[in-house]
Amino acid sequence: MATLAAKKAFTIAPTVRTLASGVPHAPALNLAAKPLADGHGHGTSRADKPSAWASSTTLSSAGLVSRTAFTARPTGHFQQRLLSTSAAVKDAPQVPDFSHYRAPNTDKNRTFSYFMVGSLGVLSASMAKSSVSEFLVTMSASADVLALAKVEVELGSIPEGKNVIIKWRGKPVFVRHRTASEIEEANREDWKSLRDPEADSARVKNPEWLVMLGVCTHLGCVPIGEAGDYGGWFCPCHGSHYDISGRIRKGPAPTNLEIPTYDLNEAEGKLVVG
């Protein structure tokens, strides 16, 4: 079953001649030329052995393959052109006269060209500007989030001396309708000696209404109203005492209760937190 496959690929022109060594004979090309002995040549070729590019023998799964490639000199049929038959070029081709197209006034043209380039810049810049600003708008809060960002409270529904807890952005907000005595008490305190010194007038827009974030500044518990040693709020987690103005008086909390941004609309009796 042993097969010996001989695969030969050759391109032969009619006038090819092959040497005894199997190398095609090309009169104009000395294939057996030795490389230059200047150190750049690699190896030498032997005249008695076909060059590797001309013939190879390999052993593959299909058997023993011997490949011989011939490349013969092309033998195209050319006809020599005779000098005497070529027509003499008498004249160069006529180049059209462009002077008609030249602008009589180049100043106007120059200004106009600059104007057009400038307009291109103007339009591109204004488009780039609106692209960037539109992109930045997409980063702001969406309309449904903004709609929830404000909370309205009817002040009329809170009697004097009462606490109301409302939810605003997921956090409790204390609203206290303070009595006259409580306001007096809040103002009486010597606030400069407190841990987080802050005057009561700086914490309210209207002394009757105290609006604070109901988050203990210590570790974020929700303080209990109308409790503690100072008649204000008391945090049950770690025992921070806040007074009637929401200022820290005793306990681990470092600062006073935070004041959110809010608007008091006294005419309509409305409080808008946010």
Partner: peptide, 18 residues
């Protein structure tokens, strides 16, 4: 148009106004 120092600001000012 003659000086770039006036041309470029003019383009930006024009873009703003436009």
């Amino acid at each position: 148009f003659k000086r770039n120092s006036t041309f470029v600001p003019a383009v930006f000012a024009g873009a703003f106004a436009w």
